[in-house]
Amino acid sequence: MPLNIVVCIKQTPATGSVSIDPQTGDISKEGISYAISPFDEYALEEGLRLKERFPGGATLALTMGAVRAEEILREAIARGVDGVYHLCDEAFDGSDTFATSYILSQGIRKIEEERKIKIDLVICAKQTNDGDTGQVGPGLAAWLDWPNTAYVKKVEQVTDTLLRVHRMMEDGTDILEIQRPALISVVKEINEPRLPSLKGKMAAKKAVIPRWGASDIKADPALIGLKGSLVEIAKRQSPPKRAGGLKIGGATIEEKAKIFVDKLRELKLL
């Protein structure tokens, strides 16, 4: 029953701290602040909860990112994971979801080799708050050739061979059984993340974090970074600003209501 779990997390710019540099057309470095992608907190928490529900395995955190991304791995330690791994190499820069999911799959294989264990479950978040694609989880499952389910809102049951999960659909809930090893992408509804403990914070401070480059994970150079990416960003722009609108006045609440309804009618929204 114990599960060895890898949770994939990413350090991303905080939503709202990102803008375009009008000179270069690139993302402006000014005012940008980084943190763990907000969705990833739920993935991390689920990894910790599953370890508590089915003790005996290890819950590990894995990220790919710049040197500064080490911060989120320390945060994962503070919350209670048993080990962290940092895929960090300039050769990874510019990876799209195709290359990223490949690199993560190689990282997971390397963790198995390094720790002499089999990973039973990989947990990703539904998406990140920067790319917003939600493609890396399913793509990673394809590289690993594991079954996967996205939009998971509950892990109901875990046996030696499978997991029973609930998937949030637009019209209700699908219940699926998925054989181990498997990958799930989780939504916010799945849990409420804990805060790091004091003891955890101490451990996080002291931890030495392994950093693996492309050759450590035996990555095929043709599949990583810009060279390995298939989708390129041709152009970035700021979305058109919304023009400030009309204030609906009116002496009484009834008058305001009438103007509101008239406006909707004018715009053919009724």
Partner: peptide, 17 residues
């Protein structure tokens, strides 16, 4: 979105969401 992510890697092709 689930299907596109998995199918793209199986086909070794790029996807955008």
């Amino acid at each position: 979105r689930s299907l596109a992510g998995r199918a793209a890697v199986m086909l070794k092709t790029g996807a955008a969401a």
